[in-house]
Design a protein around this nucleic acid. Sequence first.
DNA 1: CGGCAATTATGAACCATGTCCATTTGGTCG
DNA 2: CGACCAAATGGACATGGTTCATAATTGCCG
Lengths: 204, 204
Amino acid sequence: MGRRNLHTREQQTEMAIAAAELILVSKGLPGLTMRKVADAIGYTVGNLYLLFENQDQLLVAVNERTADAVYVALRDAIESAPAPRLQIREIAAAYIEYAMKHAARWRLMFEHSLPVGSPRPRAVELRIKRMFELVESGLAPHLPDAPEASLRLNATTLWSGVHGICVLAVTGKLRWSGTDRYRVLSDHLVDTFLAGLRAAKAPD
Amino acid sequence: MGRRNLHTREQQTEMAIAAAELILVSKGLPGLTMRKVADAIGYTVGNLYLLFENQDQLLVAVNERTADAVYVALRDAIESAPAPRLQIREIAAAYIEYAMKHAARWRLMFEHSLPVGSPRPRAVELRIKRMFELVESGLAPHLPDAPEASLRLNATTLWSGVHGICVLAVTGKLRWSGTDRYRVLSDHLVDTFLAGLRAAKAPD
DNA sequence: CGGCAATTATGAACCATGTCCATTTGGTCG
DNA sequence: CGACCAAATGGACATGGTTCATAATTGCCG
């Protein structure tokens, strides 16, 4: 067969990414082969290589999608937070909830790494950065007139912490610890961290 | 060739694990193939399957080693901490330092997951649990006469946080954030968290 | 309307890898 | 010394990533 004109390159790319996500969810990363993706969209493997340089680049494309979805989830969480002071709690909870609900995709985003030497995918980094900015904005009310650097340090620190809960929860490494209600953990981390900030602000 | 009696099964297993670690460090996970391991120890692939059920089990064995090494690193950090009150800081810093220095092995421990349905490797879980206990003991002086459950919650929360910094640091996702001196982050997290605990203990 | 060039998709091949197992080889014991 | 048993081999099989010569279509030009 030659040109079929059923779908444009862009459409095929869309379809491939969507199919990859589907397979990733149902079969996990080991089940995500180029051939399966090709089958799923009704094309052959060779054709897939006209859309993506290689498998890594397909995965990068999937990760971009995931990063967008996470961003949207956090954004929604902020907007529907009952009170500004509770925003951080809600962002954290939303992050963990998303990760648990879409574990395979979320893990891929953080665990997939390209061969050494290849440039880090700009798009994904950018999206993670935006995510941190969201946290900064949620943190700002708790740190009135703090310098930008301090705000950033605190956002990075707190968000790394939330991320850590996420990682351990998603990989099942928290189960034995007796605490598998992750909301308790993230709330506790956020509350204690913020209390610590207050204490530092108005000591003794 | 048949029985060569050069090495016992145990020795071969040792050699294989050591070779796997070496390859992992120099070539990364994608370069860690059964054939390369077999070559490195001077046996054939088939023989490797007399030592390990499959590749996953080899990786599990490597992970056990890593978990032990991490435990030792943390234990040392505690013992050489200048003051008990600073122990937590030192444990956290030691954890991150180990992860950065042995990134490939550390990542494998948290990112490698067995096919769905297979039992979680008891040995690795046990070792991670011991690690958390180390944190609990370091945290105890900061929470005098706290109930066991509270101690555990706090240890889990704080350690998840430290782990999060680790993950992001090791995968290079903190670089853009301007803060790539991870010691600053972990100290800040520990300090703020402990301050928050104190504030909760003696409010206003 | 017909054929031609450009484009698009194919599918068969290559190589590497995980895994298995029939066969061979070397040690051991009577 | 010979037979037996365990140990190690090596080659086979299936699957996966990647490439590329080739075939199939399309749009265009006369």
